[in-house]
Protein backbone atom coordinates (compact mmCIF):
# COMPACT_ATOMS: atom_id res chain seq x y z
CA UNK A 1 0.00 0.00 0.00
CA UNK A 2 1.13 3.56 -0.76
CA UNK A 3 2.14 5.68 2.23
CA UNK A 4 2.93 9.37 2.43
CA UNK A 5 5.53 10.21 5.06
CA UNK A 6 6.22 13.68 6.29
CA UNK A 7 9.78 13.88 7.61
CA UNK A 8 11.05 16.93 9.43
CA UNK A 9 14.86 17.08 9.39
CA UNK A 10 17.71 19.23 10.55
CA UNK A 11 18.91 21.11 7.53
CA UNK A 12 22.51 19.86 7.50
CA UNK A 13 24.46 19.01 4.34
CA UNK A 14 24.41 15.22 4.71
CA UNK A 15 20.78 14.80 5.64
CA UNK A 16 19.43 13.92 2.21
CA UNK A 17 22.00 11.18 1.66
CA UNK A 18 21.33 9.81 5.14
CA UNK A 19 17.66 9.43 4.30
CA UNK A 20 18.16 8.15 0.78
CA UNK A 21 20.98 5.83 1.89
CA UNK A 22 18.67 4.36 4.50
CA UNK A 23 16.11 3.47 1.84
CA UNK A 24 18.60 2.00 -0.62
CA UNK A 25 20.70 0.24 2.02
CA UNK A 26 17.72 -1.51 3.56
CA UNK A 27 15.94 -2.24 0.32
CA UNK A 28 13.00 0.09 0.94
CA UNK A 29 11.35 1.71 -1.98
CA UNK A 30 10.96 5.45 -2.69
CA UNK A 31 8.30 6.48 -5.18
CA UNK A 32 8.67 10.22 -4.82
CA UNK A 33 10.70 12.48 -2.62
CA UNK A 34 10.42 16.20 -2.15
CA UNK A 35 12.56 18.42 0.08
CA UNK A 36 12.42 22.08 0.94
CA UNK A 37 13.05 24.51 3.76
CA UNK A 38 10.30 25.21 6.30
CA UNK A 39 9.15 28.36 8.05
CA UNK A 40 11.61 27.58 10.82
CA UNK A 41 15.26 28.25 10.13
CA UNK A 42 17.42 25.15 10.20
CA UNK A 43 14.58 22.73 9.51
CA UNK A 44 13.61 21.16 6.21
CA UNK A 45 10.57 19.10 5.39
CA UNK A 46 10.76 15.99 3.25
CA UNK A 47 7.70 14.35 1.84
CA UNK A 48 8.36 10.77 0.86
CA UNK A 49 5.91 8.44 -0.80
CA UNK A 50 6.71 4.79 -0.45
CA UNK A 51 4.94 1.47 -0.44
CA UNK A 52 5.06 -1.77 1.51
CA UNK A 53 3.07 -3.87 3.94
CA UNK A 54 2.44 -2.67 7.49
CA UNK A 55 5.62 -4.30 8.81
CA UNK A 56 7.81 -2.62 6.24
CA UNK A 57 6.22 0.79 6.75
CA UNK A 58 6.66 0.41 10.51
CA UNK A 59 10.37 -0.33 9.96
CA UNK A 60 10.74 2.62 7.58
CA UNK A 61 9.18 5.01 10.07
CA UNK A 62 11.27 3.68 12.97
CA UNK A 63 14.48 3.67 10.96
CA UNK A 64 13.86 7.26 9.87
CA UNK A 65 13.23 8.31 13.47
CA UNK A 66 16.48 6.64 14.46
CA UNK A 67 18.53 8.89 12.17
CA UNK A 68 20.13 11.46 14.44
CA UNK A 69 19.22 14.40 12.20
CA UNK A 70 15.56 13.48 11.81
CA UNK A 71 13.35 15.51 14.15
CA UNK A 72 9.91 14.10 13.42
CA UNK A 73 8.24 11.53 11.19
CA UNK A 74 4.49 11.42 10.53
CA UNK A 75 2.76 8.82 8.41
CA UNK A 76 -0.01 10.86 6.82
CA UNK A 77 -1.71 7.83 5.35
CA UNK A 78 -4.09 7.29 8.23
CA UNK A 79 -4.65 10.97 8.93
CA UNK A 80 -6.71 13.52 7.10
CA UNK A 81 -4.27 15.36 4.94
CA UNK A 82 -4.02 17.45 1.81
CA UNK A 83 -1.77 16.13 -0.85
CA UNK A 84 -0.61 17.89 -4.01
CA UNK A 85 1.87 17.44 -6.78
CA UNK A 86 2.83 19.87 -9.50
CA UNK A 87 3.70 18.71 -13.00
CA UNK A 88 5.05 20.55 -16.00
CA UNK A 89 4.11 18.86 -19.26
CA UNK A 90 5.31 19.85 -22.72
CA UNK A 91 2.74 18.41 -25.05
CA UNK A 92 2.43 18.42 -28.86
CA UNK A 93 -0.19 20.97 -29.90
CA UNK A 94 -0.36 21.36 -33.64
CA UNK A 95 -3.25 22.64 -35.72
CA UNK A 96 -6.35 20.70 -34.85
CA UNK A 97 -4.90 19.21 -31.68
CA UNK A 98 -4.12 22.61 -30.24
CA UNK A 99 -7.70 23.54 -29.63
CA UNK A 100 -8.42 20.27 -27.94
CA UNK A 101 -5.40 20.56 -25.66
CA UNK A 102 -6.55 24.00 -24.66
CA UNK A 103 -9.99 22.62 -23.90
CA UNK A 104 -8.46 20.04 -21.56
CA UNK A 105 -6.46 22.84 -19.93
CA UNK A 106 -9.71 24.60 -19.29
CA UNK A 107 -11.58 21.63 -17.92
CA UNK A 108 -8.77 20.64 -15.56
CA UNK A 109 -8.03 24.20 -14.59
CA UNK A 110 -4.37 23.99 -15.47
CA UNK A 111 -2.24 26.78 -16.82
CA UNK A 112 -0.37 27.26 -20.03
CA UNK A 113 3.06 28.50 -19.00
CA UNK A 114 4.91 28.40 -22.33
CA UNK A 115 3.74 28.53 -25.90
CA UNK A 116 5.60 27.28 -28.97
CA UNK A 117 4.68 26.78 -32.61
CA UNK A 118 3.92 23.15 -32.20
CA UNK A 119 3.88 22.59 -28.45
CA UNK A 120 2.41 23.94 -25.24
CA UNK A 121 3.87 23.62 -21.75
CA UNK A 122 1.22 23.12 -19.11
CA UNK A 123 1.37 23.49 -15.35
CA UNK A 124 -0.89 21.11 -13.49
CA UNK A 125 -1.40 20.88 -9.76
CA UNK A 126 -3.48 18.26 -8.09
CA UNK A 127 -3.61 15.02 -6.23
CA UNK A 128 -2.43 11.75 -7.72
CA UNK A 129 -5.77 10.95 -9.37
CA UNK A 130 -6.07 14.24 -11.15
CA UNK A 131 -2.54 14.05 -12.44
CA UNK A 132 -2.95 10.51 -13.60
CA UNK A 133 -6.14 11.47 -15.42
CA UNK A 134 -4.68 14.43 -17.25
CA UNK A 135 -1.47 12.65 -18.23
CA UNK A 136 -3.65 9.90 -19.66
CA UNK A 137 -5.71 12.34 -21.66
CA UNK A 138 -2.70 14.17 -23.05
CA UNK A 139 -0.90 11.00 -24.02
CA UNK A 140 -2.56 10.77 -27.38
CA UNK A 141 -1.26 14.19 -28.48
CA UNK A 142 2.26 13.11 -27.68
CA UNK A 143 3.99 14.22 -24.49
CA UNK A 144 7.46 15.57 -25.32
CA UNK A 145 8.74 16.15 -21.81
CA UNK A 146 7.43 15.90 -18.30
CA UNK A 147 8.77 17.10 -14.94
CA UNK A 148 7.13 16.29 -11.59
CA UNK A 149 7.79 17.70 -8.15
CA UNK A 150 6.74 14.60 -6.29
CA UNK A 151 4.02 14.69 -3.70
CA UNK A 152 3.93 17.30 -0.97
CA UNK A 153 1.44 16.93 1.82
CA UNK A 154 0.29 18.45 5.08
CA UNK A 155 -1.93 17.21 7.81
CA UNK A 156 -5.35 18.90 7.85
CA UNK A 157 -6.12 21.18 10.78
CA UNK A 158 -9.37 19.38 11.50
CA UNK A 159 -8.94 15.68 12.18
CA UNK A 160 -12.25 13.84 12.31
CA UNK A 161 -12.35 10.31 13.53
Amino acid sequence: MRHVLSVLVENEPGVLSRVVGLFSGRGFNIETLNVGPTQEEGLSLMTITTSGDEGIIEQIVKQLRKLVTVVKVVDLTHLHSVEREMVLIKVNAEDAGRAEVLRIVDIFRCKVVDVGHDALTLEITGDQNKIKAIVNLLQRFGIKELARTGTVALRRSMQMD
Partner: peptide, 14 residues
Protein backbone atom coordinates in the same frame (compact mmCIF):
# COMPACT_ATOMS: atom_id res chain seq x y z
CA UNK B 1 34.92 8.98 4.68
CA UNK B 2 31.70 10.59 5.88
CA UNK B 3 30.00 9.12 2.82
CA UNK B 4 31.80 5.78 3.04
CA UNK B 5 31.04 5.28 6.71
CA UNK B 6 27.47 6.59 6.67
CA UNK B 7 25.74 3.19 6.63
CA UNK B 8 27.85 1.83 9.47
CA UNK B 9 27.98 4.66 11.99
CA UNK B 10 25.44 5.86 14.48
CA UNK B 11 26.25 9.34 13.24
CA UNK B 12 29.10 11.24 11.62
CA UNK B 13 30.30 14.79 11.11
CA UNK B 14 32.48 16.76 8.77
Amino acid sequence: IVGISRPCVKHNYL
